[in-house]
Simulated scan of single mutants.
Amino acid sequence: MLPSFNHLKGGENMPKVNQPFRGIVMSRKPFRERDLLVKILTDARGPVMFFVRGAQRKGFKMAADILPFTRGEYVGLLSDEGLSYIVSAGETHQWQGIVADLDANAYATYLLDLVNQAFNEGRGIGGWFKQVEAALDQMNAGKDPQIITNVLEVQLLPFFGVAPVWDRCVICGRQQGTLDYSESYGGMLCFEHYELDEHRLRLDQRVVGYLKFFAQLNLQTVGEINVKPAVKKQLSWALDKIYDDQVGLRLKSKRFIQSMDQWSQSLQLARNEAVDNQESLDQTEELRH
């Protein structure tokens, strides 16, 4: 079973005292000459922006604790309005596997951007902290970053006001047989109702099965998820289309992943062409002899 993903309310009338919290460093940017603004996903308050004084100075004692893709224990002043402040850091660890791998880094960056957009700053996020932490743990361990990200893309849709029905026909409730996704109807249509939407996505049934599976998947308990390349490609296409058309969210980090994919495809085409040219040259040489 998934953990409770209730968007719990919090932050109202909380005392302004130093509080311990678990956090995941989502992003950071320079502020003035020596300081940083660091966005951290906290276990109790969701995404929170922290002002860290002197963080750009050489020898800053918490420099390693506020690096991107770091998680750990912190103490800080969590403000209801305006910036919050980190007072100290306890045990922290950076996901080195994510930092070192370009694909994992790109998908992790996009995933954290998506989480930042999904949840209001300063409000509790229920079981989502552990779900995001588990996703990053799996990416760090070398698991497929696209599939892990696709899982959370499916599960985050309701927080953007889009709650697709994945497991049955939205018209008659049929669960058996072939299903296909309709953006117009906000969920699956069975084959008897395909004619209601000529623009349905025409998804491979393996893709339909994964979308249904991902909607209920707890990443804290799952092992390896192996998906064939053709299915992965259509999964990515379908979710990109839903986020573009129904959510209207076009993040820079997602565009970077798409440009990486295009570059990879171009490189593969160039390699295939080089192999074909070499084979053609070899055949020509054989004919000459």
Rank of each mutant, 00 (worst) to 15 (best):
M1F: 09
P3D: 03
E12L: 12
P15C: 04
Q19P: 00
I24E: 06
S27K: 15
F31Q: 11
D35T: 07
L36I: 09
K39G: 00
A44G: 11
G46Y: 02
V52Q: 04
Q56R: 15
A64H: 08
I66C: 05
Y74M: 05
G82R: 06
Y85T: 10
G90R: 02
T92K: 06
H93T: 12
D103G: 05
L112K: 09
N116T: 09
I125A: 07
G126T: 00
Q131F: 01
V132F: 02
L136T: 07
V151A: 10
L156A: 08
V162G: 03
V170C: 11
G173N: 08
G173P: 06
L189D: 06
E195G: 12
D197A: 09
R202F: 08
F214G: 05
F214W: 11
Q220A: 13
T221R: 11
T221Q: 14
E224N: 13
I225S: 05
N226A: 14
V231M: 05
K233S: 14
K233V: 01
A238V: 15
D240V: 08
R250I: 03
K252Y: 04
M260Q: 14
M260S: 05
Q262P: 01
L269M: 13
A274R: 10
E279T: 07
T284L: 15
E286P: 00
H289E: 15
